[in-house]
Nucleic acid binder design. Structure first.
Lengths: 342, 342
DNA sequence: AGTTAGCACTCGTCTCCTATGAGTGCTAAC
DNA sequence: GTTAGCACTCATAGGAGACGAGTGCTAACT
């Protein structure tokens, strides 16, 4: 990456800032006037021509001003953008709406966080629900309901509770059941759900079959219930916010964007990319893998439960988005979220 | 309501059918030709002028054809539309996609049904999740997790399982807990969740307080968990389908529609209206209470679990929708759904 | 009396044209 | 290296005209 002169940096910064604000191409005159460069528009024009040649700016058409290219945004995010602090009111409003007393259940907290985030940023926001597989097994219980049915309850360290009614093909005496359950708890305790593989389950099954040949179905169902949520839910908020963005005024574009939002599995994949790297990740335009969001940027952050990274939360908006501010909001929200969840 | 001559009925029917198919205003010539009336366009023109005067048709502008008015659609739905049977393939495809083996959990069945419905009809569809309050209490268990925490499990006759971790401010001996639980089960069994009012809970609380002054927090939480889901979830599918409809090409209209979809509580109210009446309800245009869907029609049906009406499922589309066919699809789907859920 | 042919009329849509103005690139002077 | 000046470009808006689908009305026909 070439080195830009101080002046070029200032001009690029000005162009990005102005375009983020107004959504219009910005001309040399505007830069000269509004950003008090102490230079005439002609000089700025020359510099902007240079910047265009280097690929940081582009022109929608000959007689329009310049807009930042993807490379320009990247440079802005990496080198020009100063980090910003939210105002006290903003911070307060986030923490207040996040911590309404009743919010005990983890899923509710997540669902609420996405609402808050989209409301504050006025963009679309997404959260990947905490990943079941990354939590560790804590205990399992079987609650007999009647002669033929039982309720399997599975509890993980991060507070997940999953349950499933199972049918037993033979009635079980409480002590027998107790025995099975405590054996399983002993074997499984502390393992992450990821580690409860089919082969491990088969092994346990073999062990138990020797003693009681009953729980066949219970096992199948336990196994199923573990596999089934391989893919955590994705929560969406403010999906219609993109409709207010001037860059999305073609129905066709809107259609493609919104269709994407209906495909949870795709959203999941998109968010999953941010999971590997702790902290904030900014993906601009075509840096995103999916074609439908090549005109968008995605800012993601990871959140944790008890020090373990469990999910991703992100904001999706047009490439022309207020990176500085949104990153600040995201930082604040994740902080709060981490605290609430632990 | 006036009586229409046989001929007027045929013409109205033709106009509605043609407009549903093409979305364009339909002219006298089209009616004469495509529907083989054995009449000249001029005659039809006269009849159409009559129908317009009576309020069944309207003209977007002087030199355009006619489109059915809301009243026209109403007449069509009430008097002209014959009921239709789905083709075997259609029926098969619905029942197949609805009954994939693994679908044990009630919420998954519901979520899947809405997907199928929107995919088949290519409209937006909504389901009100089964109403917790309408089910009856079956049993409650408290599972001690450790010294200070317990898991409350609530099971209803329709297969709902709700659970919640509670903190006990004092440790409880298993027999004490057992005592409380069996007392509660005894008192609550068979009541619908609706009937478990705050005053009833208070009464129970008084009874128990005399014996053990412990479960204060457990009670608060039980109460909360009952109240909290007063309002069942609404599942949405195919929200972007309306974007393909030619009547929704203004971004503004789309925006208003989609914003509505983000407000779950409003959707709930809309669907709730259909709950009172068993069977299929068609609401056309302004017959819907909410202004944002005054250009839409909503067809709803109720579904049951074990003979009890528990929720509403519906299709939302432009007033110009294929009522006949969609009603047939909805009938078929609800049938399947009722069978699956019982 | 009901039906039909004929015709003038309306009005939305499409296309072409022009005026406008923002913003550029280039050149020459400072 | 910087700036003023000027010719040039091009998206956008508005207006004029052609087109055509479809109507309402009248007069003639059965």
């Amino acid at each position: 990456m070439e080195v830009l002169s101080e002046r070029k940096k200032r001009i690029l910064h000005a162009v990005v800032a102005s375009h983020i604000k107004t959504a219009d191409p910005v001309g040399s005159r505007t830069v000269a006037r509004t950003y008090r460069m102490g230079l005439s528009s002609a000089t700025i024009r020359n510099e902007m021509a240079d910047l265009e040649e280097m690929g940081y700016l582009e022109q929608p058409h000959t007689s329009a001003g310049r807009i930042p290219s993807q490379k320009g945004y990247r440079y802005y995010v990496d080198h020009l953008m100063t980090s910003s602090k939210l105002s006290d009111e903003e911070e307060l409003s986030i923490s207040r709406s996040l911590s309404s007393e009743k919010m005990r259940e983890i899923e509710q907290i997540i669902a609420n966080a996405v609402k808050v985030l989209s409301a504050v940023t006025r963009q679309t926001s997404l959260i990947m629900g905490p990943q079941f597989q990354k939590s560790t097994f804590q205990q399992m219980r079987i609650l007999p309901l009647d002669e033929r049915r039982g309720l399997v309850v599975l509890i993980t360290d991060s507070g997940f509770i999953k349950n499933k009614v199972i049918e037993l093909n033979q009635s079980l005496s409480p002590p027998e059941l107790q025995q099975v359950v405590s054996y399983l708890n002993h074997k499984l305790f502390g393992l992450s759900i990821d580690q409860v593989t089919t082969s491990l389950i088969n092994e346990l099954k073999r062990d138990l079959f020797r003693r009681l040949e009953i729980l066949e179905q219970a096992f199948i169902l336990l196994e199923e219930s573990l596999r089934e949520e391989q893919q955590a839910r994705v929560y969406l908020g403010g999906t219609t916010n993109i409709l207010s963005q001037p860059e999305f005024k073609s129905v066709d574009k809107i259609h493609r964007m919104l269709s994407l939002f209906e495909q949870e599995s795709l959203l999941f994949e998109i968010l999953e990319k941010g999971l590997s790297e702790e902290g904030i990740v900014v993906k601009i335009g075509t840096e995103n893998e999916y074609e439908d969001i090549h005109e968008c940027s995605l800012i993601t952050a990871t959140y944790k439960i008890k020090q373990r990274v469990l999910g991703t939360i992100g904001v999706l908006g047009p490439t022309r988005m207020d990176y500085r501010w949104i990153i600040a909001v995201l930082r604040c929200l994740v902080d709060q979220l981490n605290r609430t969840l632990s």
